[in-house]
Nucleic acid binder design. Structure first.
Lengths: 136, 136
DNA sequence: AATACTGTAATTTTTTTAATTACAGTACAA
DNA sequence: TTGTACTGTAATTAAAAAAATTACAGTATT
């Protein structure tokens, strides 16, 4: 479910970029997104591992950007939340291995998925988070 | 769910391209994909409206390519199944309209989604169905 | 007239996603 | 040193989405 993860993560990142330096609690962030705070913290996990945000535990803790919004592209966010998954998916069911096409389709599809993901990264590289948040 | 629709549709189209001219029943196609025949017919609906396949009702009916695989790109298939939807999605919940970011994020996201979809189309335009099926 | 298809609607089942609950761990601050 | 307000994460429940199934009208073919 890369699909809505990107939206959620970009929304979070935009908030953090809009109020730089401030620590935001997952509850506050969740309010703007109108989703559950636990889900926010889960999404933040991926963004943290990419170094895009940093968090502070304890009272008055929260999260803020891990580096300047000028140095974060939308592709960075996409890659952080994407992990090993693809934007496109295989069918859940295993194709018929006795079929010439069915037996090989998945490997060919996966190769296309890589190309698609790379194309998305390329197009998202163009825009920085700084530029994106300045639209608001 | 554009994600697995593309895989299902490309699988179908590859089968049809591999045995050109022949009428394939949804049951035969469903066997290779290991999915329900009704779902195959549903996917075919989108491909038909794009002129990519043609169907024949009645006994010995079925579907076959609507034009030469040489004249079909993977982008054509993607666009046919995509319809008005995007590969990326908004969050299901409406963001807080009282928040500066929340009130405007969705329109900005939709603009990105268009760019992403266009990038996918561009990369998929490169390969024809003919070339794709010749890999098998 | 029997057969083998498409096309499509309605329903049920399965899968996925999100929400909720719960709580250990941490830092601040009175 | 204790209450408070956070993160981090696991486990469970609820909701939503996707796929499968059932059903059947309509249509060529033989």
């Amino acid at each position: 479910m890369v699909k809505s993860k990107f939206s959620i993560s970009l929304h979070i990142m935009t908030l953090l970029a809009y109020y730089p330096g401030e620590w935001h609690s997952s509850a506050i962030i969740a309010e703007s997104l109108n989703i559950n705070p636990v889900l926010v913290r889960k999404e933040l996990k991926a963004l943290k591992s990419g170094g895009l945000v940093e968090s502070k535990e304890g009272k008055n803790g929260g999260v803020r950007l891990g580096k300047s919004a000028k140095n974060i592209s939308l592709a960075d966010i996409f890659e952080a939340i994407k992990g090993d998954s693809h934007v496109l998916n295989l069918s859940n069911n295993l194709p018929d291995v006795n079929c010439k096409i069915g037996s090989q389709i998945n490997e060919k599809l996966l190769s296309i998925f890589d190309n698609v993901d790379n194309a998305i990264v390329d197009i998202l590289k163009i825009q920085t988070l700084e530029k994106f948040k300045n639209q608001f």
